[in-house]
Design a protein around this nucleic acid. Structure first.
Ligand SMILES: [Mn+2]
Ligand SMILES: [Mn+2]
Ligand SMILES: [Zn+2]
Ligand SMILES: [Zn+2]
Lengths: 140, 140
DNA sequence: TTTTTTAATGAGACTCATTCTCAATATAAG
DNA sequence: CTTATATTGAGAATGAGTCTCATTAAAAAA
């Protein structure tokens, strides 16, 4: 709590930004999320908790958090972006069940290294990647 | 030419759809594309060639083509979807250069199989996947 | 071929997530 | 406490894509 509060303060200070109640609230909401959430969901949750914040500020704050690696953005192709906190949350990719909508996380070292190898071979350096596996439950 | 024309006719017939000049034009435009193109680009190219077609029809036709595996849809997270023909074009994934915007294609058998293994392990069957590597040129 | 049936089209209204504008407000420095 | 200015909220704007509906054109029927 104190840990991540000072985390946010430091990031804001570094960027020359102010530590406001809205930014604190958005980060609190996001960092305590178990699952992957969209901006509207965060906005509505904060409002329900009587926290005075606007959609614009939710979007603006999320941008700051993403830019500073506190939050990861993910797009599944349905129009709205999902977000998840990155603290205590190692890199992983996602399996999305087309039937239930359930999102499972996975991490595979070989896969990660293969990617690095593939881009290096072509004279590139890997900056980030998107890897999503859309699946259906196996029927037996 | 006759080959892919009858390809389109058969697909339309199968779906109980009509073979129209607009559908022919959109498919012709798309199938002869070397690179990855968005709907607006296709719309504008057809208009420039004096082909009478509307945006709505371009979108509707692309949907038919995607649904029938003549065209692949891809989203890079910048808001507009890109499309590429699938005939004479084996499965591949994409490397996107953040500096130049250049899109390179790659295919790696080990990677494809790893994905299958990963989802099977979790009781799923892989339906489709998105794999994009965002890179920067290696400076030496 | 001509007629009939019905799917397809075009123009533009609409949607919806996200971004922008700008006057009012709050933060942090002095 | 005062000042300078970054931040905020309300709602307008944006933009890719979808929808509506009157008109047009395939293609089946005659
Ligand atoms: Mn995740
Ligand atoms: Mn490609
Ligand atoms: Zn990964
Ligand atoms: Zn692949």
């Amino acid at each position: 709590m104190t840990r991540s509060k000072s985390l946010l303060i430091n990031i804001l200070r570094n960027e020359g930004l102010r530590y406001t109640s809205q930014r604190r609230a958005v980060w609190n909401e996001l960092k305590s999320s178990a699952d992957h959430r969209d901006a509207e969901d965060i906005y509505l949750c904060l409002r329900r908790k009587k926290i005075r914040v606007s959609r614009a500020t939710v979007y603006r704050t999320i941008d700051v958090l993403v830019k500073n690696n506190l939050v990861r953005k993910m797009e599944l192709g349905d129009g709205r972006a999902l977000y998840e906190p990155r603290i205590g949350n190692e890199h992983h990719d996602h399996i999305i069940c087309l039937e239930t909508g359930k999102i499972t996380e996975f991490y595979n070292e070989d896969l990660e290294q293969l990617q690095e190898k593939i881009v290096k071979q072509r004279g590139y350096e890997l900056v980030r990647h998107v890897h999503q596996l859309f699946v259906r439950p196996l029927k037996k």
